[in-house]
Design a protein around this nucleic acid. Structure first.
Length: 164
DNA sequence: TCCGTATTGAACT
DNA sequence: AGTTCAATACGGA
């Protein structure tokens, strides 16, 4: 089976995010690398389905960047272990403007001692922002780490009115 | 099986 | 208050 993925830019105020779609849904979302030009979405070769997902993704992404919870999510075609999926699922339950510690997330998934594993799952999160891994802080409200750059984590938290 | 990790809390300077 | 350290769960090599 050819797992072809189509990469489309999502223009936001923060830059162009890159969204990767598989035939099953949104598979990955990357932070803007440089100031990538607002490239056009090629009209040809992209299914109506994917364009619909892309529209939803764009709306959801902008909502999160504005500090609000997205009204609607595109289908997520995430690749990961059962543990990782349960972590990501728990992350999506964190309301906008709130934070949790890694320990609390570990409790939420029924593995109170798996705090570090939670960190690992967060780092493996293919869809930042939409899966709000940035809302997970260390125990005493300290900024933890962030795969795609701590600057983004700080910016996202500030955007939601969270103080660290 | 060993190593690294986006942790944590306690014990020591 | 800053630093070190052991414990712990999981994924990748």
């Amino acid at each position: 089976m050819k797992t072809e993925q189509i990469e489309l830019p999502v223009a936001t105020a923060e830059g162009n995010f890159m969204a990767c779609y598989s035939k099953n849904g949104l598979a990955r979302l990357d932070f803007p690398k440089v100031n990538t030009p607002a490239s056009n979405i090629p009209a040809a070769g992209i299914s109506t389905q994917i364009r619909l997902w892309h529209r939803i993704t764009e709306t959801a992404l902008k909502a999160v960047l504005a500090g609000r919870a997205p009204r609607k999510f595109p289908p997520l075609d995430v690749v990961g272990t059962a543990f990782q999926k349960s972590v990501w699922n728990a992350l999506r339950k964190i309301p906008a403007g709130q934070t949790r510690s890694y320990g609390e997330v570990a409790q939420a998934i029924g593995r109170p001692r798996a705090v570090r594993a939670v960190g690992g799952a967060c780092g493996a999160n293919p869809i930042p922002v939409l899966v709000p891994c940035h809302r997970v802080l260390a125990a005493n409200k300290k900024i933890g780490g962030f795969s795609s750059g701590l600057a983004w984590k700080r910016r996202l938290l500030a955007r939601e009115g969270v103080k660290v």
